[in-house]
Design a protein around this nucleic acid. Structure first.
Length: 270
DNA sequence: GCAAAATGTCAAG
DNA sequence: TTGACCTTTTGCA
């Protein structure tokens, strides 16, 4: 589930489990063999996330991982399992191991390379001191639909298709509204909401946007079918107004929204 | 047992 | 705008 919350959670966990000690790094699949050799046996300093990018610092070498659509880490304690399938990268620490498969990017970078990537990324709601003002300026100058801008990692980073759809619904924003028509107050509210939602996502490891409405009285849990307002709910009734949830393709990604709750005020009056 | 889909990005045209 | 990339999971026969 690689939106920003996943990467920040991974950074935190991997730092806890591996940092401060040497890590055996290998690439059973072979595709990362050269990179692995550069850092194998080195002490891991820290793992950090910015948006959907993960940076594991081994002295002057940084392992950069981008999970893309399919990438996934598996992890455990004790002896790692026999390598199976396309295992791009394996870490083995003193009592912990982790396996990476399917990532779009897994490479060793210099500090300059890392700075170059960070320079291309917009502010991250999961930063220690979140500041959405730069993203707000970009949005206020753009004619592009807000639904597209939210997914643009150079405008703000870490938002994927789920948070995009859900936050627009939560604020009743029409997805095609041009960025310049959003207004600063609405942007401030959206940004603050993203900070809250994504921090909750780091804690739980899931994207739940419907709390507290759909939490079970008995167990306090949210069923996966109840975790979202519109994401992947095409044709199902909107949880607020009952209108069937709509799905459009926008820039070849699926965009989910409620055509009634997310109308512009003027359209709503017609 | 196989096809399709999945939370993403980049390069080619 | 379209396809390539990469792997696992889900859903249908």
């Amino acid at each position: 589930m690689p939106e920003g919350h996943t990467l920040h959670r991974l950074a935190r966990d991997q730092t806890t489990r591996f940092a401060g000690r040497p890590v055996r790094v290998s690439s059973p699949q072979g595709r990362f063999a050269e990179g692995a050799a550069l850092v194998d046996g080195q002490v891991l300093n820290v793992v950090r996330a910015h948006g959907k990018h993960l940076f594991a610092v081994f002295g002057a070498h940084t392992v950069h991982v981008h999970l893309g659509l399919y990438g996934k880490f598996a992890a455990g304690n004790g002896t790692p399992p026999e390598p199976r399938g396309a295992l791009r990268m394996r870490w083995v620490g003193t009592d912990a191991w982790t396996d990476l498969r399917g990532a779009t990017a897994c490479e060793v970078l210099t500090p300059d390379d890392v700075a170059g990537i960070l320079a291309r990324l917009g502010p991250d709601p999961l930063a220690r001191r979140p500041d959405g003002s730069l993203a707000g300026l970009r949005i206020a100058r753009s004619r592009a639909p807000i639904a597209g801008l939210l997914m643009d990692q150079s405008v703000l980073s870490g938002i994927g298709n789920v948070y995009r759809a859900e936050v627009l619904f939560r604020h009743r924003v029409p997805p095609y509204l041009p960025g310049r028509e959003l207004g600063p107050e609405r942007w401030a509210a959206i940004w603050a909401d993203l900070v809250t939602l994504m921090r909750a996502g780091v804690r739980s490891g899931r994207i739940i946007t419907t709390l507290p409405v759909h939490r079970s009285r008995r167990t306090g849990r949210v069923a996966s079918a109840d975790a979202h307002y519109v994401y992947r709910r095409t044709g199902l009734p909107c949880r607020l107004c009952g209108t069937p949830v709509a799905m459009h393709m926008l820039s070849s990604r699926k965009l989910y929204f409620c055509p009634r709750c997310q109308q512009t005020p003027i359209e709503a009056l017609l």
